[in-house]
């Protein structure tokens, strides 16, 4: 079993690396065949005041006079070693620029993710055990409400209420604890809605299963029934949703950063797009690809750990035991 998992994990990891490299190549090719030449545009910008000879020297030094495949190869080999080149505007290494803003975005996104998860699970628990007269129906409507409100509206509302009215945080200090927390809430709410929708549907299904009744008959209370029995099988499909929700976190963080006035990947992208700073954009796209691929890799690796029934491709298959006595129920168990 362990061997099967490791060989499965190795296979998935290899696939992930291939996908990242292909994404890099794809972005590179798309940028190369786009009309216009941003690089020489920048160099020929009269404000920079390069002479023709200097431009030629720079182009030669950067290898920009080489054919596209050779440029791609050079760029790719640099990328693999972690060298993302120099920003065309600030002339500083792209890695440094990203390293400056990445922690802020990471903190925001991971806080938002934790909030989204907590919120979704709390809503899920409520829909199962909150008595009808205490507004279970209201709780079930919450995810749709969360989804239909854009996150910048939530952000502005939070700033207005907690920043200006209650004075919990100061809008001009966007990196303070409270400011970060509310930014994360604004970002996490729509993400939690997606997770909660799938979670509620699965909890409803699981709590009707015979094993839930049997477990209650065994004397389990609500909390333990939820935590030990219902949550794990219900979160299997949620894992896939979470992997997709991370994308939403990335996209949403650009907007949230703007609304809350934080510096982060969002502000970096914004600046780079407006100045056509290609190396930075190429790096950010590759970074997004890496995050996506990693998250999906984690989802793929977690899934077999959560669900023992998953058959791992490449490893030895599970076989139901036929010792002692067998029955039709076995085949039902295997196929269902």
């Amino acid at each position: 079993m362990r061997g099967a998992y490791l060989s499965y994990a190795a296979k998935r990891l290899t696939q992930a690396i291939v996908v990242i490299l292909l994404t890099y190549v794809f972005t590179f090719v798309v940028v190369s065949i786009l009309p216009g030449d941003p690089i020489t545009n920048v160099l020929r910008d009269p404000q920079n005041g390069f002479t023709e000879d200097e431009i030629k020297a720079i182009v030669a030094a950067q290898g920009l006079d080489q054919p596209i495949p050779v440029q791609l190869w050079t760029s790719l080999s640099h990328f693999v070693t972690g060298d993302l080149g120099l920003s065309m505007r600030s002339n500083r290494p792209v890695t440094t620029l990203i390293a400056e803003v990445l922690p802020s975005t990471l903190i925001l996104a991971s806080a938002a993710f934790v909030i989204a998860l907590l919120l979704a699970v709390t809503i899920g628990y409520g829909t199962q055990f909150l008595p009808k007269r205490f507004g279970q129906g209201l709780l079930r409507g919450l995810p749709s409400l969360f989804l239909s409100v854009p996150n910048f509206v939530i952000g502005l509302a939070l700033i207005h209420i907690f920043g200006f009215q209650l004075g919990l945080f100061r809008v001009i200090a966007p990196n303070s604890f409270w400011a970060t927390l509310f930014a994360a809430v604004a970002l996490g709410i729509p993400v939690s809605a997606r997770i909660a929708e799938v979670l509620i549907a699965n909890l409803d299904n699981e709590s009707e299963q015979e094993y839930a009744a049997v477990a209650r008959g065994r004397g389990l209370g609500q909390m333990r029934l939820f935590a030990k029995h219902l949550l794990k099988p219900s979160s299997l499909p949620v894992v896939t949703v979470i992997a997709l929700a991370i994308g939403e976190l990335l996209g949403g963080s650009l907007i949230t950063e703007t609304v809350f006035g934080r510096t982060g990947i969002g502000s970096l992208v914004q600046r780079s797009v407006s100045t056509q700073d290609l190396p930075v954009l190429q790096a950010v796209v590759s970074l997004a690809a890496v995050v996506f691929v990693l998250v999906n890799l984690i989802a793929d690796l977690v899934y077999p750990l959560l669900d023992p029934r998953v058959k791992l491709i490449g490893g030895p298959k599970y076989r139901p035991t036929t010792a002692d006595d067998s029955s039709t129920a076995t085949s039902q168990a295997v196929t269902s």
Binding site: Y211, A215, G217, R218, K228, H229, A329, A333, S336
Partner: peptide
């Protein structure tokens, strides 16, 4: 529940949580 009144269900294939080991569920009893 369980202590004084035990329950044996109809369809054994669906009466145990599919993603937890038998041991983990036995510990509840």
């Amino acid at each position: 529940r369980g202590r004084a009144i035990g329950f044996v269900p109809q369809d054994p294939a669906h009466a145990l949580n599919p993603v937890r080991t038998i041991g983990a569920q036995a510990h509840e009893a």
